Simulated scan of single mutants.
Amino acid sequence: MTTTAWRPLAACLLCGAIAGWTTQGWRKDASIAELQRAAATSKTNAATELAQATTRVLTLERAAGAALMLRADHLTQEQTHAKTERDRFNYDVRSGAVRLSIPVASSQCATVTDTATAAGHRNQARAELDPATAAALDTIAGDGDDATRQLNACIDAYNLVRDTYHVQTE
């Protein structure tokens, strides 16, 4: 083959290579554009899901906060009511309207073998408490009741948060 015969063949091969190169570039650009669109769509979907999840969590937080405030108000009301009742009781004890007594063990009471008589407390000796001692005992009992109410409120708050956020405690 002569040089002149190779030129058209070389020109065709060169044109084919350029066309192939250009076509490959277009496909690559199309693939890149498709990947960019998919990434943008994924990013938008992720942002939307994040916004929805954030909204759900904020709604749960607000609901839990409101429920906790209601529980705290209820605890305050319970404590106020209990204090009023204790104050009334202490007033009644001091005024003599209520008298407190405790059983007094005697040698006869300690040796009773008849359980029916012991359980019935018939003619059992009792000692009356002075008002100051009665008030002191009531204060101790009241403090215990207050602590129990506070612990119950803590348990209620814990359960509320656990149930609100569907936390598993295992």
Rank of each mutant, 00 (worst) to 15 (best):
H74K: 05
T44F: 09
A64V: 11
Q79L: 15
A141S: 14
A97F: 15
N45K: 09
R88Y: 14
A134Y: 03
D130W: 15
Q108M: 04
T111W: 07
A116R: 03
D114T: 05
T59Q: 14
Q124S: 10
Y91D: 13
N45C: 02
A119W: 12
T113F: 09
E85Y: 10
E34S: 10
L58H: 08
A105H: 07
Q52V: 04
T48E: 15
D92C: 06
Y91S: 08
A118G: 00
N45M: 10
L129H: 03
S42L: 09
R126Y: 14
A39I: 04
E85G: 01
H81R: 07
Q77Y: 11
T41G: 00
A110L: 15
G65K: 01
A134S: 04
R62A: 14
R122Y: 12
F89M: 09
A116V: 03
N90Q: 13
F89K: 02
T115E: 15
R37Q: 14
Q108C: 00
Q36M: 12
G65P: 00
T80G: 09
A38S: 08
E78G: 00
N90M: 11
T59K: 08
G120E: 14
L35D: 14
Y91F: 13
R126F: 14
L129D: 05
E61H: 12
L50N: 11
G96H: 05
L70F: 09
L137H: 03
N123R: 05
G96P: 03
D87M: 09
G96N: 09
R62C: 03
A116P: 00
R37I: 06
A136V: 06
A46N: 07
R37H: 11
T54D: 13
T133L: 14
L35S: 10
Q52A: 08
L100H: 07
A40E: 15
E49C: 01
A127S: 06
D146M: 12
A110P: 00
V98E: 04
D130F: 11
R94C: 04
S106M: 05
D138A: 11
L75N: 03
T41F: 13
V104K: 12
G120C: 04
Q108I: 06
E49R: 04
T48S: 12
T139S: 13
Q79M: 14
G96D: 12
A66I: 08
V57Q: 11
A116H: 03
A136K: 11
S101R: 10
Q79V: 08
V112A: 06
L60H: 07
R126G: 00
F89N: 02
S42W: 12
Q52M: 07
R86Y: 04
F89S: 02
E85I: 09
E49G: 01
A38V: 05
D87S: 07
T133G: 02
L60P: 01
T48F: 14
H74Q: 15
G142S: 06
I102M: 13
T76D: 13
A66N: 11
T76W: 05
A66W: 11
R88A: 14
T113E: 15
Q36A: 11
P103V: 07
D114H: 13
S42D: 13
R62K: 13
R126H: 11
I140N: 10
D92H: 09
E85P: 00
T139M: 10
H81P: 00
A134I: 01
T41M: 06
A40P: 01
A132E: 15
L137Y: 05
L137R: 05
D145H: 06
A119F: 06
A125N: 02
Q79W: 07
R126P: 01
R122D: 07
T80P: 03
G96S: 07
D130I: 11
